[in-house]
Design a protein around this nucleic acid. Structure first.
Length: 228
DNA sequence: GCGACAG
DNA sequence: ATCTTGTCGC
C-alpha cells in the first residue's frame, strides 16, 4: 500500500519531539471509517533483549468474524532506542516498510501503544495513522499519561482517560471481566467512541484485542524460529 | 531536585 | 519489550 514520506526518521530525540509537535495538529478525530469495514489489521514488533534486530508483523482479519485471513512479516534493524514518548521513532520505520510492501490496505489498523494519549498528543497510532492515511487505533496495555476512574468490573465497562486540563485523551476499557483495563485512544481518522467500540468488537476471549494479540503472537513466533 | 515513563 | 517458575483465581 502507498505510504507518505512526511519527514526524516534518522533524527535525535530533540528533533523527534519537534516533529511530533509539528504533526500533532494534523491528526483528525473525525470518523472516516467506511460504512461496513471488511478488513481490519493488527501489528506489532518483537525484539530480543540486547539486539537491534526487530521482527515486524501484520495480521489481517475479517472484520465480522475476526478470523485471520492473511499475515505479513519483515525483519530489520531498530535504529532508535526505546525512549518513553518516542516509541514511533523506534518501531515506525520497520512497520511502515512492512505496510508499504502489502498489496492491499486494511480499513482500520490497531497498534500496540498509545494514540492521542501521549504527552504531545502524538503516540504511535497517530504517527502511523497519518503516514499510512488509514483510520488507526492505539490500544496500550499500560498508561503513559492521563488519569482515569476505575471502570466497572464487567467486560465492556469504560471510563474516560483525561489530561490534566480535563480534556479527553482516550478510554480505559475493560476488555475482559476482572482483568486490568486497556487504554484505547484515537490514532487518526476516528473518534473516541468509535475507537472504544471497535476495540470491544475486536476483542474475543482475551484481554488484548484479536488484531494486536495475533500480531504479537506472529512476531514472537517468527523471531524464535529465526535461527540467526 | 524528584517521580513518571507506551514498547 | 524480554527474561523466566511457580502460583493464585475464575
Amino acid at each position: 500500500m502507498r505510504v507518505k514520506d512526511l519527514h526524516p526518521w534518522d533524527v535525535a530525540p530533540k528533533e523527534a519531539r519537534r516533529i511530533q509537535e509539528q504533526l500533532a495538529p494534523k491528526v483528525s478525530l473525525k470518523n472516516k471509517l467506511r460504512q461496513n469495514p471488511k478488513l481490519i489489521a493488527g501489528c506489532d514488533i518483537s525484539t530480543s533483549r540486547f539486539s537491534k534486530t526487530g521482527y515486524a508483523g501484520v495480521v489481517l482479519l475479517d472484520a465480522t468474524t475476526l478470523a485471520p485471513v492473511d499475515e505479513f512479516h519483515l525483519k530489520g534493524e531498530l535504529g532508535f532506542p526505546y525512549v518513553p514518548g518516542l516509541l514511533s521513532f523506534r518501531e515506525g520505520p520497520l512497520l511502515i516498510e512492512l505496510f508499504r510492501q502489502m498489496p492491499t490496505a486494511p480499513d482500520l489498523i490497531f497498534f500496540d501503544g498509545q494514540g492521542l494519549a501521549h504527552p504531545r498528543r502524538f503516540g504511535l497510532a497517530c504517527h502511523m495513522g497519518l503516514v499510512l492515511g488509514v483510520p488507526a487505533i492505539g490500544v496500550a496495555k499500560s498508561l503513559l499519561t492521563g488519569t482515569f476512574a476505575e471502570p466497572g468490573t464487567d467486560k465492556g465497562a469504560c471510563s474516560p482517560l483525561l489530561a490534566e486540563d480535563g480534556s479527553r485523551l482516550g478510554t480505559a476499557v475493560r476488555t475482559r471481566t476482572a482483568c486490568k483495563p486497556v487504554f484505547v485512544s484515537p490514532g487518526h481518522a476516528i473518534d473516541f467512541e468509535t475507537a472504544a467500540a471497535w476495540t470491544l468488537r475486536a476483542t474475543g476471549k482475551y484481554r488484548i484485542p484479536e488484531p494486536t494479540r495475533l500480531a504479537h503472537s506472529l512476531v514472537n513466533r517468527v523471531r524464535k524460529s529465526d535461527a540467526g
